[in-house]
Amino acid sequence: MIGIIGILVIFVMVFGGYLAAGGKLGIILKALPFELMMIGGAAIGAFLISNDMAAVKHTAKDIGKVFKGPKWKAEDYRDLLCMLFELIRLARSNPVAIEEHVEAPDESSIFGRYPKIQSDKEAVALICDTMRSASMNYDDPHQVEEVLEKRMESTMHHALHSSHALQTMADGLPALGIVAAVLGVIKTMASIDQPPEVLGKMIGGALVGTFLGVFLAYGLVGPFAGKVKAVVEEDAQFYQLIREVLVANLYNHATNICIEVGRQNTPSHCRPSFTDLEEALKAVKQEAA
């Protein structure tokens, strides 16, 4: 919602200010379709040249994050801590019983109680792979933490590709606007024998290209790239919380301490209070009993 509001503010302030200053939209609207075809078409073409089809699809999907915001909400962090509490407690009390959950998370009763987390392949794989490795005695906290860190860095690098692609497009749009403007000047020079009022409109139309390139770069595409990056980085904290809790578990801290480590590493605006989390964990214990 806030993304839509931002776009409306941009258009109202830019074009509203132009009209308030006595500008006329007629010349802009007349030149806009042709300038947009040249600038937008060239930008899209350059984007397709510099990215493969997987990256193109990934970027198109990630544009939705500008309007949807982060995937993980406060209740999801609380559910994650509750789920990890169940898994760690079961792994310590019955190492054999935990195997059916980490080997087949789609059929797990524990994962099934948290469908949103269960549907996220990366979160489930991160939990199951780490707990499976621990059951095979690969449980050195330092080594596991290093492996998880590298894995998340790789995942983050891939997730940020769409943001980088959009930013590259934004960086090129002003130059493409100049290209369109130069073509407009060439067109104007070919009609140099026309009256001044005609030449004035033609030059104005050419300058629409420069305006459009800069406007799209800094008013839309650039902010889109920044928002996608911010959302990706915030969602990554969900997986970092998994790492913190599972590594704390490998240090053989008490289960409640492991969960408290995770709670304190939860982003402040999504962090459940100690009391709220305790009540949620009590409900989990009662349901398990």
Rank of each mutant, 00 (worst) to 15 (best):
S119W: 03
M83K: 05
H58R: 12
A60W: 13
I117K: 06
A74W: 09
F67Q: 12
M53S: 10
L87K: 04
Y114W: 13
A125P: 04
S119H: 05
T130W: 07
S93K: 15
D62M: 12
L87F: 00
D120P: 01
P115C: 10
E107A: 07
W72S: 03
E99Y: 01
C82V: 06
E122A: 07
S108E: 11
K65V: 02
E100M: 12
V102N: 10
A134G: 04
M53P: 00
R113Y: 03
R132K: 13
K61T: 07
I127P: 01
S93I: 12
M83E: 08
A74D: 14
R78F: 00
G69Y: 02
K116Q: 07
Y77T: 08
H101K: 14
K73D: 04
A60G: 06
A104S: 11
P95R: 15
M131H: 03
N94V: 12
S119K: 15
D120N: 07
A55D: 15
E122M: 11
I98S: 04
G112F: 03
E99K: 09
K71T: 14
F85M: 15
N51A: 07
L84G: 02
K57D: 04
F85Y: 14
Y77N: 08
A91K: 09
F111I: 06
L80P: 00
I98F: 03
H58G: 01
V66R: 07
E99T: 05
N94D: 15
Y114Q: 11
V102P: 06
A125M: 12
K68P: 00
V96I: 14
P105Y: 10
R113F: 02
L80H: 01
R92A: 04
V66N: 07
I63D: 05
E100H: 07
D52Q: 15
E100S: 10
T59V: 06
Y77M: 13
I110R: 11
E100W: 08
K116P: 00
L90M: 14
N94W: 11
W72C: 00
V96C: 00
A91L: 02
V66I: 12
D129L: 09
R132Y: 05
F111L: 11
E122C: 01
E99D: 10
S109F: 04
S119E: 14
T130K: 10
N51L: 12
K121R: 09
D52A: 11
Y77Q: 12
F85H: 15
A104R: 14
Y114P: 05
V96A: 07
L81R: 04
I88H: 04
